[in-house]
Design a protein around this nucleic acid. Structure first.
Length: 951
RNA sequence: GCCAGGGUGGCGAAAUUGGCAGACGCGCCAGACUUAGGAUCUGGUGGAGCAAUCCUUAGGGGUUCGAGUCCCCUCCCUGGUACCA
């Protein structure tokens, strides 16, 4: 009879992770092991510094986590566990971004209430996360769709609604401090008519991400822009601070740049053009006021109301037709596809304030209503778009900037031949440049000229270099009241309302056409129950169906819009500090402790004053580089201005994890069938192997493909760790190995131990987890491979220390080392296969943040034979390395001839340059290569190499 | 088009201030132990060459005693963005 063999899958398990991982997860759960108490709560230790490490919380989708999600989570978990060893109070929470479109769309299809699907999805996500063994503080779990949470989202909206941005103080202030007569015009939350994506066929408004190439994602129906009454948040008021206060943050430079570009600050001037034969004035924004003389026509955006006023009777038909044509185009057609510029002459003329010339006013859709004033002065000689347009319609092109040397200051000034409004009584001895100008007009060069140069054909500023010309003309315009220096931003105010069901209802009611806030005591305002989530067809949000709910009083009705998904994620990191608080969105003391720059008790210590505060480490995907982070910073600043928070920025250090691709190198998606579920990987190799592989793949920030054989390799490493401490007995059970003994590590072992402590500590701080794991592999190789084996030698543990080397001569001559060939290295006396307990314990602590289950188990088993208090790995301090174990007596240096390595020799660590040079010159290999040549130079670098240059 | 980040063995990747390219792992080759091996252990493994030796960090140029690393140009990949005056 054959013995009963374990099944294939069981046999393949190199160590019993399937038993010990659930065991430890149960222990952690039962002990609530990773709960961080707040200041004042039992168990809180005020002596410890705080560390807040945060993941971007997930949207609990129906498909669950794939292996890409936990990459960042694993990184933060390692940091969290590491910081706990380092004596920090660690805040490491997780929650759910639970409002959102997919659940609503699912509800529309199935009638299943979003709350039900969301609850199920959360349960699945939670199961996945727990099985990976993350050390989240589950006591702090929050969900944005939970009334206990969104009550405060609504409350924060009210704070925003009830305040305004005081341009004097550059801060948000309660609306009561506003002394003007129309508070609604300055509120940070306001109502405006703005265009939305309206799909007539579906009878609904679509989010931008639901519109693909101008068609609805569902059904492919046309989508048009239609103005609707919307809630807006005045984020533009904070544009300047959002740029300035970005600077000191410890974020990737690329992300900061992305945010700056998104905000898109540009400095220029607003210039007012009078309309000929009319009282109307067209204001334009330009970053190149110095090219004012080159403005040969003007363009109004088709939506600009002035178009109606200015268009002459003769042009009426053409203009109307053009505007109709434009409005039928989607945004995409208008921008992406519109390579050919189009436009129509309005029939009207404006007066160029610089020279009094009449210039035609056109309307064209290459000018956007949403930026600047919705009108431009066109300078075709110095603007690509204007040039293209001018060429198409035969408009005048006049160069006003020339290349060439900048004239000495004051050598050229205003001309006399000026008739424009600006010229009036302006100063100006004229200087005739004709003689000395380098005749730029004759140069055959491509227009437009966009670079800075020298103003020409511009009497008031001729000869001035562009920056000076800008300043000069702007101040002249200012003097005459024809313009002023202005700053413009690409950033728009935030469209904050959605025509959706599954989001936070606004705490707002409407009465006689006016909005007002409901009282705080009426929060949370819970969405009404519905069983039909379909669009109403009229463009009214689904909440309109709940007639009773909508009716607030005899005279007032509720706001029907809901907030966007961003709302909850704008402040969830604050709620984590105090998730159960029923009095406030976050208690003052917990906020001060976790978000502040240090704990109250330690505030006087200098070491803490350097800490800027906020979330100490925030890890998430690049897809949130702009919007989420910008919106959250905005809310944070408002709350800070209103005195609710202790810091001005929420996230001190930000890191983006890269995307994990499928094994086929493509993005993981159902479509390719390459999605990998963490639970499947864990069933096969265990959670520790999963975690370690996620980190071993490569740098955190980088995009990289998944590889199952890679997981296997890491699993083998963990199995080696397991077998370093245990051996299988007769019964097939794993028992603590006899090799584990209370012995002193060898000197070579000490070197590996301390090198590993150093590298792992530094690498965790730098989030270079892949190299930290590599170093721990070296450690394990050094202890598992026989001394003298190649593996041990490479690890540095098998190689003989200097003192054991024969042939070392005192007195300053250092014989070259005989190159070691494989297997030749002598076994060191006293080295046995015994594993020193202390070394093993050190490894277990270093590895614990990466592989918490395995290391906890081994630590516990070690305690059975070698008792230690406390007998819990998490109670241990992080080891410190001792530099003295890292220094060597000898170091190998390379001998180069003309930059090519010709030999390597061992020299005493202190060998100076002269000694090195002498050794190099005396070296037979070197001599061989310099024979017959003249030595020109010898470069000696201590502890590195000698390079003999000979020709 | 513009902005950002990349390009190093068959693969994932290492590499202080410029100082021995390829650590660590995967894969592969050979061997040991085995009835067996997708287990474990040992050795080998960038390319060419019998060898000495030569070549090698996308490609080309430059600075330097010395360049994956610094400078210039070109090509390719990924992400973001799209007439922002």
């Amino acid at each position: 009879m054959l013995p009963v063999l374990p099944s294939m899958s069981e046999r393949r398990k190199p160590y019993p992770f399937d038993i010990l991982e659930p065991k430890w997860q149960a222990i952690w759960e039962q002990r609530i092991a990773f709960h961080a108490p707040n200041p004042g709560e039992p168990g809180f230790d005020p002596a410890r510094p705080k560390y807040y490490v945060l993941d971007m919380f997930p949207y609990p989708s129906g498909s669950g986590l794939h292996v890409g999600h936990p990459e960042g989570y694993t990184a933060t978990d390692i940091v969290a566990r590491y910081k706990r060893f380092r004596g920090f109070n660690v805040l490491h929470p997780i929650g759910w971004d639970a409002f959102g479109l997919p659940a609503e769309q699912y509800a529309i299809r199935t009638g299943q209430h979003p709350e039900v699907t969301t609850r199920q999805n959360i349960a699945h996500f939670k199961k996945q996360l727990k099985r990976i063994g993350f050390s989240y503080d589950w006591e702090r779990e929050v969900s944005t769709a939970d009334a206990r949470f969104f009550r405060w989202t609504q409350w924060i909206f009210l704070q925003i609604y009830q305040s305004w941005f005081n341009p004097e103080t550059k801060r948000a202030e309660p609306i009561a401090t506003y002394t003007g007569d129309d508070p609604d015009s300055v509120r940070l939350a306001y109502v405006a008519e703005v265009p939305v994506n309206w799909c007539p066929e579906l009878g609904t408004v679509l989010a931008n991400e639901e519109v693909i190439d101008g068609k609805s994602e569902v059904g492919g129906f046309p989508v048009v822009r239609r103005p609707m009454r919307q809630w807006m948040l005045r984020i533009t008021a904070y544009a300047e601070r959002l740029i300035d206060e970005l600077e000191p943050l410890d974020w990737p430079e690329g992300i900061k740049l992305l945010q700056r570009n998104w905000i898109g600050k540009s400095t220029g001037a607003e210039v007012r053009f009078a309309v000929a034969e009319s009282d109307d004035v067209i204001a334009v924004f330009t970053t190149r006021p110095d090219t004012l003389y080159g403005a040969t026509y003007m363009v109004l955006a088709p939506e600009n109301p002035l178009v109606d006023r200015l268009t002459t009777n003769e042009q009426q038909a053409a203009v109307s037709a053009y505007r109709a044509q434009v409005s039928a185009k989607s945004d995409l057609e208008r921008t992406d596809l519109a390579k050919d510029k189009s436009g129509v002459f309005t029939g009207a003329y404006a007066i160029n304030p610089a020279n009094g010339e009449r210039i035609p006013i056109w309307t064209a859709d290459y000018v956007l209503m949403g930026y600047g004033t919705g009108a431009i002065m066109a300078v075709p000689a110095h603007d690509e778009r204007d040039l293209e347009f001018a060429n198409r319609y035969g408009l005048e092109i006049r160069e006003v900037v020339a290349s060439g040397a900048v004239s000495p200051p004051g050598s050229a000034r205003a001309s006399r031949a000026v008739s424009g409004a600006l010229a009036g009584k302006s100063s100006g001895g004229a200087a005739d440049l004709a003689g000395e100008a380098p005749a730029p007009a004759r140069e055959a060069r491509a227009l437009p000229r966009l670079e800075d140069g020298v103003a020409i054909n511009s009497p008031l500023i001729d000869g001035l270099a562009t920056p000076e010309a800008k300043k000069r003309i702007t101040s002249l315009l200012e003097e005459k009241g024809l313009g002023r220096r202005t700053i413009n931003y690409k950033l728009h105010d935030w469209l904050f309302s959605r025509q959706r069901y599954w989001g936070e209802p606004f705490p707002i009611v409407w009465q006689q056409g006016k909005h007002r806030a409901i009282h705080e005591s009426e929060l949370p305002l819970v969405p009404p129950p519905l069983d039909d989530f379909k669009p109403t067809g009229t463009g009214e949000p689904p909440l309109a169906r709940a007639k009773d709910w909508v009716r607030y009083s005899d005279t007032a009705t509720r706001e029907l819009n809901t907030m966007p998904q961003w709302a909850g994620s704008c402040w969830y990191y604050l709620r984590f500090c105090d998730p159960g608080n029923e009095e406030r969105f976050v208690g003052a003391a917990p906020e001060r402790y976790w978000m502040g720059s240090g704990n109250d008790e330690a505030q006087n210590e200098i070491s803490h004053s350097a800490q800027p505060g906020g979330v100490d480490l925030y890890v998430g995907g690049t897809e949130h580089a702009v919007l989420h982070l910008l919106y959250a910073r905005f809310w944070h600043k408002v709350l800070f201005d209103l005195g609710h928070l202790s810091t001005g920025e929420p996230f001190q250090r930000l890191v983006n994890q890269g995307i994990i691709l499928g094994e086929d190198g493509r993005k993981m998606s159902k479509r390719w069938g390459n999605v990998i579920d963490p639970l499947d990987v864990i069933a096969e190799y265990g959670a520790d192997a999963f975690r370690c592989y996620e980190m071993f793949m490569g740098p955190l920030e980088q995009m990289k493909p998944w590889s199952m054989t890679g997981v296997e390799g890491v699993a083998r490493f963990l199995a080696r760790v397991w077998r370093l401490a245990t051996e299988e007995n007769q019964e097939g059970e794993w028992a603590l190995s006899a090799a584990v003994q209370e012995v002193e590590p060898t000197r070579a072992h000490l070197k590996v131990i301390h090198a590993t402590i150093k590298k792992v500590s530094e690498d965790i701080e730098a989030l270079s987890f892949n190299t930290a794991i590599a170093q721990m592999m070296i450690f394990v190789n050094a202890f598992t491979s026989p001394p003298g084996s190649a593996r041990a030698s490479r690890a540095g543990a098998g190689a003989s220390p200097a003192t054991a080397r024969p042939g070392s001569l005192p007195g300053g001559t250092f014989p070259a080392r005989v190159p070691e060939t494989a297997g030749e290295a002598p076994a060191l006396p006293g080295v046995s296969r015994s594993v020193p307990v202390a070394a093993l314990r050190t490894l277990l602590v270093l590895l614990n943040p990466f592989a918490p289950h395995l290391t906890s188990e081994l630590w516990e088993r070690l305690g059975e034979r070698f008792p230690i208090t406390p007998n819990e790995i998490t109670g241990q301090p992080w080891p410190d390395y001792q530099p003295e174990f890292l220094v060597e007596d000898e170091v190998e240096i390379a001998l180069q001839v003309n930059g090519k390595v010709r030999d390597r020799i061992m020299v005493p660590i202190g060998a100076g340059k002269a000694e090195l040079e002498a050794l190099a010159r005396a070296n037979p290999r070197v001599q061989e290569f310099i024979a017959g040549k003249t030595v020109r130079k010898v470069v000696a670098v201590e502890k590195k190499l000698v390079n003999v240059v000979a020709t």
